[in-house]
């Protein structure tokens, strides 16, 4: 069997290769040094981040909207899951043998995805659509500021209608934690990771192999060209927003047991997802997934070795360094080309 060592060496010398190798090394070191829970935490946080960040990178790639309100769809998803799951869990308490023990959480998570998609469609119809029809001059900046307003609006609507207290649940699926390689992991965490893995896989499959997914990618590469070959831009735009907000919503819904719902809960996933997008460059779904795990690792390792609360300082400093030396991200190549129209 012939192995192309030269290609591997070249890859290892590229920015992507260096970062991936270093992250794997750091992950291994931390796992050996502090125990496997570092790896487990990284994988679960990374799975959630991958969902939010792929939505964000999709928005940026297709619609050129630098979303500041993406965390708010995360919040909407978790809020929906809370209000759907609370009655279900009360019912389960009374009837422990009901089929809802298994299905109930799934219903809540699916509904959180649907509510995220609906919220995305509504915001497209009420906010982005009117702006697009009015003018597309300086679109990136204007739409970005629009999403800033949207974020403030959604946060405070939550506070006004549902109150500012923490709305959380104890668990989705009960039962004993599972032991994997000496670390005890609750079933909810495993399920959350499985859900995010499944959805990212489905999403990647959809984008790569279906006709609609290819149409979305075509629009992200060249909107005019896509229109010439007969793609309905309006539908694609609507679908993209619904998809990316649904991804954020399902992330919020499936992590309700870790992050209770409250008005400003969306900020942290938003910061982290932006770190991922900047790190991995734009329009690259697999890159965003890899970047999500790197940022998650960075965060977990920071909390482990430096202390809680530093997890904004160290990742931002590192990402600023990356931005200085590689402005287009470690996997991307034409960030500026896409954004500077």
């Amino acid at each position: 069997m012939y192995i192309n060592f030269k290609a591997i060496a070249n890859w290892a010398k590229s920015a992507a290769g260096i970062t991936i190798t270093i992250s794997i090394a750091v992950a291994l070191y931390a796992t050996i040094n502090s125990g496997p829970y570092v790896l487990v935490n990284t994988i679960i946080t990374g799975g959630m981040l991958a969902l939010v960040a792929t939505g964000l990178t999709l928005m940026l790639g297709v619609l050129n909207i630098a979303m500041f309100a993406h965390g708010e769809y995360f919040m909407i998803g978790s809020l929906t899951a809370f209000y759907v799951f609370t009655p279900i869990s009360n019912y389960i308490m009374e009837n422990p043998d009901s089929f809802l023990v298994i299905i109930g959480p799934v219903i809540a998570i699916v509904l959180s995805m649907v509510s995220g998609a609906i919220a995305g469609v509504i915001s497209e119809k009420l906010v982005f659509g009117p702006l697009r029809r009015r003018s597309t001059d300086n679109w990136v900046m204007n739409s970005f500021l629009l999403t800033v307003g949207l974020s403030v609006l959604l946060i405070n609507l939550h506070q006004l209608i549902f109150g500012a207290d923490f709305k959380g649940i104890v668990r989705y699926w009960g039962g004993m934690p599972v032991s994997i390689a000496g670390a005890f992991i609750s079933r909810d965490r495993i399920m959350a990771f499985l859900i995010s893995g499944l959805i990212v896989f489905l999403f990647w499959f959809f984008m790569t192999y279906t006709r609609t997914g290819r149409a979305i990618r075509a629009v992200s590469q060249d909107a005019t060209g896509a229109q010439i070959v007969g793609i309905n831009i309006e539908n694609i735009v609507l679908l993209t927003i619904a998809l990316s907000c649904a991804l954020a919503g399902v992330a919020g819904g499936s992590l309700l047991f870790m992050y209770p719902s409250y008005p400003t809960m969306g900020l942290e996933p938003l910061y982290m997802a932006w770190f991922v997008v900047i790190l991995s460059g734009l329009g690259n779904i697999l890159g965003a997934v890899a970047g999500a795990f790197m940022v998650a690792l960075l965060k977990v390792v920071t909390v482990e070795y430096i202390g809680a609360g530093w997890d904004f300082v160290v990742p931002s400093a590192l990402i600023m360094l990356i931005l200085i030396f590689k402005p287009s991200g470690i996997f991307g190549s034409e960030v500026r080309g896409v954004l500077d129209k």
């Binding site: 906010v127 009117p130 702006l131 009015r134 204007n142 500021l145 629009l146 800033v148 307003g149 949207l150 974020s151 403030v152 609006l153 946060i155 405070n156 609507l157 506070q159 006004l160 500012a164 008005p263």
Partner: peptide, 17 residues
Amino acid sequence: PGLNLIIYAMLLILVMI
């Protein structure tokens, strides 16, 4: 609580559009 912020966010969105 938060009504003033809702109004200012709405104002910002309307002005931007």
